Simulated scan of single mutants.
Amino acid sequence: MDINDFDFHLPEELIAQTPLKDRTSSRLLVMNRDQQTIDHKQFSDVIDYFRPGDCLVLNDTRVLPARLYGSKQDTGGKVEVLLLHQQDDDQWEVLVKPAKKVKQGTVISFGEGKLTATCLEEKEHGGRILRFDYQGIFLEVLEDLGEMPLPPYIKEQLDDRERYQTVYAKEEGSAAAPTAGLHFTEQLLEEIKQKGVEIAFITLHVGLGTFRPVSVDSIEDHDMHAEFYHMSQETADQLNRIKQENGRIISVGTTSTRTLETIARDHDVFAQTSGWTDIFIYPPYEFKAIDGLITNFHLPKSTLIMLVSAFAGRSFVLEAYKKAIEERYRFFSFGDAMLIL
């Protein structure tokens, strides 16, 4: 398929720059695939679309304060470092800017020497392997020195770090938030459980490839980034039982969807497993795991709008996006949400 099949014009003023004070006060566009209808609701209304016996699957990854600002020890030149994923012990794959300043052997200092990093290897597109040296616990040092790695289209400063975390975030390791989950509060999740809907947790650590534009004309030629995922035995047993009892599995976010579809593809059932997935979901694709999807509004020509189009149909999705723009919905990470059933 051609990349331009997933293009649309988005007025820049519709890109949400700050989160709403009340997580559930976002708007909700509801797409019914069978009836081809579109309804406009508030996110708190999402509970009305769930049935007892359904299961909501949440990604419990937690975003690291993964952006660090430091300087080269030899020259004092400023360097920005973005942690991508941990390799062995204190070695991380990172992105650096400006990349040309950081060569193998370069030492970078952060926080007046509280943390230092030595470049072990140079990779493509600004990628580097760094070894970090510090006293104490790395995550505590990172909490002290690091900043939240907000997406490049968000220009405003984030006053409260926790607003870029889901209320159920637990497993440290993401370079970005699974933003569909930002709309839930503990109270709403409790009300959903009281209705007889089960909650299940999986983990996928979101990489920055999520925001990487597709740069090829034919989407089949795109190389998908890989991200680490994990499903516990408890969650696998829970989801297999839900399927056997004809309950619906409703995935919160494209990250949860990619994890569920990867495991269903590889095992035919849900299974306790961990690994790296580079699954690329675009039309036509036969979904094996999910029956519903909650997601935010995505960038034009992105792999995320392709995934949503595979689930709901490209024409129907573009029609929904057109109506969302007309109705002045807020887009992207801090924006409004869609429910697709």
Rank of each mutant, 00 (worst) to 15 (best):
R248F: 10
S218A: 12
L189E: 04
I192N: 13
R241W: 06
I290P: 07
P284W: 06
A236G: 03
D278K: 14
E191Q: 15
E220Q: 14
R258L: 08
E286I: 12
T273S: 15
T262L: 04
V206K: 02
L189I: 06
S232D: 11
W276H: 09
E186A: 14
P284R: 04
E190H: 13
Y285V: 09
T273L: 05
G207K: 03
Q194S: 14
I290L: 09
Q187N: 14
H267E: 12
D237A: 15
E220A: 13
L208E: 08
K193S: 10
D278R: 12
G207R: 06
P178Q: 07
T262Q: 09
M224C: 14
F287H: 05
T262V: 10
K288F: 00
T254F: 09
L208A: 14
L260F: 02
A200R: 02
I250E: 01
H222D: 03
I263Y: 02
H205G: 09
A264T: 11
T257E: 01
T259Y: 00
L189C: 10
G207M: 09
I294W: 04
Q244I: 06
A271M: 07
Q187H: 15
L204I: 07
G209M: 06
T277R: 08
I202A: 06
H225K: 06
S218N: 15
A264M: 15
D268K: 14
R212I: 02
T235L: 09
A289I: 09
S274F: 00
G207H: 10
Q233G: 02
I250T: 09
T273C: 10
L204F: 08
T185D: 01
R241I: 04
G196N: 13
G247I: 07
L293W: 10
V206W: 01
F201Q: 04
P284V: 13
F270P: 02
H222S: 01
T259M: 05
Q187P: 00
P283C: 07
Y285E: 04
T255I: 09
D237R: 12
I281E: 05
V206H: 07
G173Q: 01
D266M: 02
R212P: 00
Q233Y: 07
A180L: 02
I250P: 01
Y229W: 01
